[in-house]
Design a protein around this nucleic acid. Structure first.
Lengths: 340, 340
DNA sequence: TTTATCATCGAAATCGATTTCGATTTTACC
DNA sequence: GGTAAAATCGAAATCGATTTCGATGATAAA
């Protein structure tokens, strides 16, 4: 079961390794006759170039790294889905790592990927990432980097995002137009830009429609979990009876709220309207089905990969790289949790 | 931004590449003095061994391949979660590919992973995989292989599974004990062993409890989708009024059934009991919450990886490999969709 | 002082593929 | 036949780290 090498083919045919290599790569200084002979034997022996050797020579691994906060997550798994599928089609394999929302792990993983010499890195930042030295290291390493969804404006690289501010605005506006007069917001953590922007969109919509902003009905979900949605809904129900609308940072949180109100018999959307964010599959099958903002995960993955491959190609050629920021559209998905 | 190599360190210190290499690997034929000097400079220059070169020399990539049918799937994404987390802790990276339930893609991906020379392969077969030549190729290639969940008994390798037959039995028994007298089964595709075994467990339970098996209330879900659950529920409701229990091959299918019955006002579990399979998160948050069989995805991923690493280590040492099949326990999760 | 032992080092081969550059052979043409 | 041009080939360097094996110098024992 010895591995077939160029050397073996060369010896068997009585020619040099050089010629074998050239024949396989279809160089034009190899006669058609020997070319055919080499191709033939290579096929017969099922020759596979040793990728380790190829990597070493060509200095590329045809592999890209992907770091996301977590993989058991509808939005991210959709992104991963798109990335690995498209990458494979383009001849690249994907190494996936998850930061588990830990800045420390994220840093280690960047080092890992760089030491593995991936051709490029795709990533979505953890909610707790504040220091950005590891990202700068990637750039100074000349390894192409594309950030998506959870990005940092301070890093000079290509990015694929949605407009969280306007999406947050749309979600709130949808509640307002469906008749809500006092709208609470179950926001995300304080650090990530996306969560901040959705909150700002919420605030702006209230303002534009002359509803008073009330910080006592803005709750912060640290873990963006079902339980937080449930608990905050309980708080609303017991301490803020007049709230008639909730904009949740994510469908999971929204579903937690729906579960609570179902439990205590508060009618959705009659007594309270709820809108989530992301359009997870789950949101469409609960009852009442949850209105939400569609966040195009698959598209985001696809676009991010495309940008990355472009930069990889440019870097290889030594061309100047043109970073770009792509903003993908979102849209309101009207379901039964709002009375629009 | 030139890469730091052993050669550079050697030249800077006026010693040989050999000694630098040995110093870094703490060989004992290097004096403490030079060792310190090398370590020092290496640190200062931020030396990172070129993994391509290391791979070529050591003939291992510290990378494993993972093939699953699909990643946007609660059960599989949990497995992936476990695998990449544990792998990273053990110094291995994971390349993920998804077969999209295509035998052809699966074959290509095996070739890809072998040509990339991953140190081992973990996989769960696609529902449509019938020919097993690609798996035999992996074995004859001496690349360690561990199959999990969707396996083939015909392949001689380590496996991590659940006992689908007894789990199917338990699910059906649970319905029976909760008072169901006529139980339908929304089964999985005809090919995969797991789906067959769950069906057999269902049949056996009926038999043990003296319920008549009726093939007209066994429906086959080709895609194991929400819609199939919904549509088959409709069929039950319109054509088999006397059915009072459903065992669905998967939570997703079960949730489809729940959605239909909710829609037409059939009371769950009073009029019909439903049990799913896998214990997806989603099943716990719909209403009524769905009883199910807990399938330990994280454990399965963890165990599979552990077995694989063991075989990788054994293979490297040239030891005889002892394949083993691990059967993980499942358990019934009682929720509100059954009246136990 | 001589010999044996030990501590330190490095030349060179190796992993397998790629590529440069020069050598050789063949063909074409006068 | 002789020369120029084209076609065909291969030696060797290279990518960077690892490891074998031998060389050198230092130290200890005789």
């Amino acid at each position: 079961m010895a591995e077939v090498t160029l050397k073996q083919i060369a010896e068997e045919l009585g020619i040099s390794v050089t010629t074998v290599s050239k024949a396989l790569k279809n160089y034009d200084d190899v006669s058609p006759k020997t070319k055919a002979a080499v191709l033939n034997l290579a096929q017969k022996l099922n020759y596979q170039p040793n990728s380790f050797a190829v990597n070493l020579r060509t200095k590329e691994s045809k592999t890209i790294g992907l770091i996301i906060p977590e993989i058991v997550h509808h939005f991210f798994s959709n992104i991963v889905n798109a990335i690995i599928e498209k990458a494979e089609q383009k001849g690249y394999l994907v190494i996936i790592l998850q930061s588990n929302e830990s800045e420390e792990l994220e840093k280690k993983q960047i080092d890992l990927l760089l030491s593995k010499r991936v051709d490029g890195i795709l990533m979505s930042l953890s909610n707790n990432t504040k220091d950005l030295e590891h990202l700068k290291k990637v750039l100074s390493h000349k390894t192409p980097l594309v950030l998506f969804d959870k990005i940092s404006k301070a890093i000079d690289c290509s990015k694929v995002i949605i407009d969280d501010r306007s999406a947050g605005y749309d979600a709130t506006e949808h509640l307002i137009k469906s008749g809500c007069k006092k709208i609470a917001h179950f926001r995300g953590p304080l650090n990530p830009q996306g969560s901040i922007d959705r909150f700002l969109g919420y605030k702006k919509a209230l303002e534009d429609y002359n509803l008073k902003f009330d910080s006592s009905i803005v709750f912060t979900c640290e873990k963006v979990s079902f339980n937080e949605g449930y608990e905050f809904a309980k708080k609303i129900h017991t301490e803020h009876k007049d709230v008639d609308g909730i904009f949740a940072i994510t469908d999971l949180v929204g579903i937690g709220a729906v579960a609570y109100f179902n439990e205590v018999g508060v009618k959705i959307p009659e007594q309270i309207g709820i809108i989530g964010f992301s359009n997870w599959f789950m949101a469409s099958v609960i009852s009442p089905s949850l209105s939400t903002i569609d966040q195009p995960g698959f598209e985001m993955g696809k676009k991010s990969l495309k940008l990355l491959l472009k930069e990889i190609k440019a870097t290889k050629k030594g061309n100047q790289i043109q970073h770009q920021t792509v903003v993908l559209p979102t849209k309101v998905i009207k379901r039964n949790s709002t009375a629009f």
